[in-house]
Structure formats: structure tokens, C-alpha cells
């Protein structure tokens, strides 16, 4: 059931990307996300796509496994597409029924948004597939360190994230167990109107909340008894260290970002959605 979701989980493998410093990967992911929002035309997208494929190739996570993770965002994807399809105004009307209109621009927009979303999620999940959660939180703590000077509780945020990551699988299992237990008492999670279905989940949610509070309580005690007192005077068991491959990665990602920015400015078309016009402008060079 819920346990099939692979999104956001660590995939055990030994690759260049796996071995990179988490900070490199976090900054790399930010760079990649930024690049997706910079580009507005299909050629720049193609480069972003090629960059993504390169990362997938390097990280040795099977494509099949990555696709399985995409199942989790199917609904968001469909909703995004439907919204873009029906709410984009355009001239080339393809289909009309009462107030509903589908235009060529709408379809194009929907395709754009969907591919951007997919690339975004795949990009981020490469980070989570290749970085152990503990490493990831260490990296985040370090990347966010400057924020400490404006009183952001960086260590606490990182600690909360790492605890959340540790407990997600446990709570998922717990949800699964409670659902089964209520099924055994004749619960019905599949039929009925949406309101009714939400109501049917109360017998799952209440015990889940109770269990989470109990766990949180016990975890606090366990942490306290092991002398935890925040980030002050804490030493690191695994301090972060940059290697040569990180330097190479930084050079690659900033070169990539440079190319994207350059192309975005240079190719900035009058009509960004008109791919034909774009194709023409490229040919002219």
C-alpha cells in the first residue's frame, strides 16, 4: 500500500554522486531548480533535460526505480495539466463545450508545466536517492549556517528534519497497521462520497496522532537522557569534507547554469511559446 512509495528514500549504490559531499548536492539541486525556472523555451529545456539524464546516468539509480517514485505525484501532475489546459487563454481553439475551451496554447502550456514538474521532482529525488538522510540534514545544517546570524535556529531545524526522516517509515508502517486493524472491524476506506471517506479515516487518524505523541514524548526522554542540549558544544562524528570530485561538480553545475542563463537571455524570443519561431531563429545562426 503506502509502503510502495520510493520517492524521497535513499537508494543504496556506490556512484560518483553518492560519494559527493551533501553540500555539493544541495547547492547543485538549487542550481538545477533555478535553471528550470529561468528557461522558458524548448531548447533550454532540452539542455536541462540532458543535464538531468547525465545525473541519472552517473548516480546509478535504475530509471525504473525513479519512475516508480513518480507514481506519488500522479494526481498533482494530472491536476496541474487540467488547470493549464482549461485556464490558458489562447487563439487557436481546438475544442469548445459551453464554458470549457481547450486551445493549442493551453495544451502546450500543460505539457510545459507537466514536464517542468516531472524534471523538478526527478531532480530533487536524485538528491534524496543518493544522499543518506543523515548526511542530507548535516549538509543542510552547514549550507544554512549563515542564517544563524539572523537568529534562525539552524541546528534545531536540521535535528527536526533528521528525526522526521527517521520516523516517517515507522509512522507509515503504523498507519498501515491501524488501517488493517480498522478494516478488520468492518471499516470501509474505498466507497462513499468524499466527505464520507474523509470521515471514515477518523478511526485511523486518531490512533495515529495518539501514537505519534507517545513516540515524541518517549524520544524526548531518550534524547535528554543521552545528554542532548542543543547544538552548543556538540562535536561531529562525521564532519563534512570536500573532495576533488566536488570541485569538478561545482565547475560543471556553474558552467551549466551559465549556459542556461546565456541562452535564456540570448534566445529570449518575442513570443516565447512559439516554438516554430524559435526554431527559425536558431537556424539563422
Amino acid at each position: 500500500m503506502i509502503r510502495d512509495i520510493t520517492l524521497g528514500q535513499y537508494y543504496f549504490a556506490d556512484s560518483t554522486i553518492h560519494r559527493m559531499d551533501p553540500r555539493t548536492k544541495i547547492i547543485g539541486t538549487f542550481v538545477y531548480i533555478a535553471s528550470l525556472f529561468i528557461c522558458k523555451n524548448i531548447y533550454v529545456y532540452a539542455i536541462a533535460f540532458a543535464f538531468l539524464m547525465l545525473c541519472i546516468f552517473l548516480c546509478k539509480v535504475p530509471i525504473k526505480y525513479i519512475c516508480r517514485g513518480m507514481k506519488a505525484i500522479t494526481y498533482i501532475l494530472i491536476i496541474t495539466m487540467i488547470f493549464n489546459m482549461f485556464f490558458t487563454r489562447g487563439e487557436t481553439v481546438l475544442w469548445r463545450w459551453k464554458a470549457l475551451v481547450i486551445t493549442l496554447e493551453g495544451i502546450r502550456n500543460a505539457a510545459f508545466m507537466a514536464s517542468r514538474l516531472i524534471m523538478l521532482v526527478v531532480g530533487c529525488s536524485i538528491m534524496t536517492f543518493t544522499t543518506m538522510p543523515s548526511n542530507l540534514t548535516d549538509g543542510l545544517e552547514s549550507v544554512m549556517h549563515p542564517l544563524k546570524y539572523i537568529k534562525v535556529p539552524v541546528h534545531e531545524i536540521a535535528m527536526m528534519m533528521s528525526i522526521a526522516l527517521r520516523f516517517i517509515p515507522i509512522l507509515m508502517e503504523e498507519t498501515d497497521k491501524i488501517m488493517k486493524a480498522q478494516l478488520a472491524r468492518g471499516a470501509d476506506f474505498e466507497n462513499g462520497s468524499i466527505v464520507k471517506r474523509v470521515k471514515n479515516y477518523i478511526p485511523v487518524l486518531v490512533p495515529l496522532f495518539v501514537a505519534s505523541f507517545r513516540r515524541a514524548n518517549e524520544l524526548t526522554l531518550a534524547m535528554e537522557s543521552r545528554c542532548y542540549r542543543g547544538g552548543e558544544n556538540r562535536t561531529r562524528m562525521k564532519p563534512l569534507k570536500y573532495h576533488k570530485r566536488d570541485a569538478a561538480a561545482y565547475i560543471t553545475m556553474f558552467a551549466y547554469l551559465g549556459i542556461i542563463i546565456f541562452l535564456a537571455i540570448y534566445l529570449s524570443p518575442k513570443d516565447s511559446t512559439d516554438a516554430a519561431a524559435l526554431a527559425g531563429s536558431i537556424n539563422m545562426q
Binding site: E174, K177, I178, K180, A184, R185, G186, P203, P207, V210
Partner: peptide, 17 residues
């Protein structure tokens, strides 16, 4: 069938709501 075959899970008190 689930009415006829009653199943009490491990730590069943965790399902009380």
C-alpha cells in the same frame, strides 16, 4: 467475511480511537 472472522492484532489497544 471480516465480521465472521474477527482478527485481534498485536497491541490492539493501539487502534482505539
Amino acid at each position: 467475511l471480516r465480521q465472521k472472522v474477527g482478527l485481534v492484532f498485536q497491541y490492539p489497544e493501539h487502534q482505539l480511537f
